[in-house]
Design a binder for these strands. Sequence first.
DNA 1: CCTCCACTGGAACATGGGGTAG
DNA 2: CTACCCCATGTTCCAGTGGAGG
Length: 362
Amino acid sequence: MAPVNISIPSFGKLGLMSRHTVIEDPMSLQSNYLPSEFIDREEEEAALQSIFSEIDQKGPRHTFIYGPRGTGKTHLVLKQLNQLPDSVATCYIPCHRHDTEYKALKQLYETVTDDQISSGHHTAALKREIGKRTTEIGVVIVLDELDFLMLNDGDDLLYYLSRTNEFNTVLISANHDNINDCIEERTQSSLQPRQITFDPYTSEELYQILYDRVQDAFAPQSLQQEALTYLASAIENPALGFDWLRAAAEAADSVITESNVKETRMKGLRHYIDAVLNGFSEHHRLLFQAIKELSREHDSSIHTGQIYDQYQELCQAYEEDPLSNRRISDLLKYLELLDLIEADYHYGGKKGKTREIQVPKL
DNA sequence: CCTCCACTGGAACATGGGGTAG
DNA sequence: CTACCCCATGTTCCAGTGGAGG
């Protein structure tokens, strides 16, 4: 990628060596940190604002947001949720952790009733209880990472939510640019969402995003401009950039240099992947490790069978009982939705029916 | 044209967590 | 306590896939 030329203030010359560490305020480098200003998202923000301003007026609103991972979808929606009046109840559901109708309904139930429940209830009973509490109150339900829900019984939930009048929904996906690809016709006809698309950031925008966070997080003059320029051109997802910056800061003496950044790529990546896989099972992690090891050994792409063999070896090493290959096939789908791997599906050919899998550069 | 590769992905089932009702 | 229901996670079984090589 060509070097980036941006006319924003640089960090100037290296500051005097100081004794304190580079990181002053680590909070603003957390990926869940909500900045007050967003870079180049004016249109999307205005579109969301206009939809949210109509809530409670003329029936329910449904919105579908598509954009690759790391384009600010979740952050912008959360910001808008915070600005809604208190009369509107909100429920944010990250579907990669709540990937069935029951789990999502449980979250919704706990939000509207302020009551914890365990498993074992009928979904119909939950819906009845939820319905009782939400008459005439507007509720905004955000289903983030919708694709994980759609792997299971998400359609039933969407159908239910679109059929009653109390629910406004915001559906967020990083993998389907058209929601009709993954919902049934009955749901299509009652949902009819408005769509907002988030485009990937350019390197210039990524630079600006990182720059803003660095201002809050790091001591003054503790980062060379070339280091940040390099970083911004090497990533697509700001979240990876934050983890990478943290790794670089830990490796630096008092000023982060370009070589600090280059040397800490693997460490930053590891932090990022750990965060993405946090909350998933040990088997998800072992499976991903198996794929990483194979992709290091083989230049060409790798296939499901090889991966399963490698996974079984890892299980033996860690004294875990391996899951069946049928199950692993499903877990692979999860890793794919998380954009940790890329898969090409082959339904025939010399190699038979399989998936060709690669680890993207990230 | 036929066969075969090496899985995919749907469906039924098992087990273990929990629930309510009588 | 018993009977019977639900959901989560995972296994077992198996039909189906479509291009390359014979």
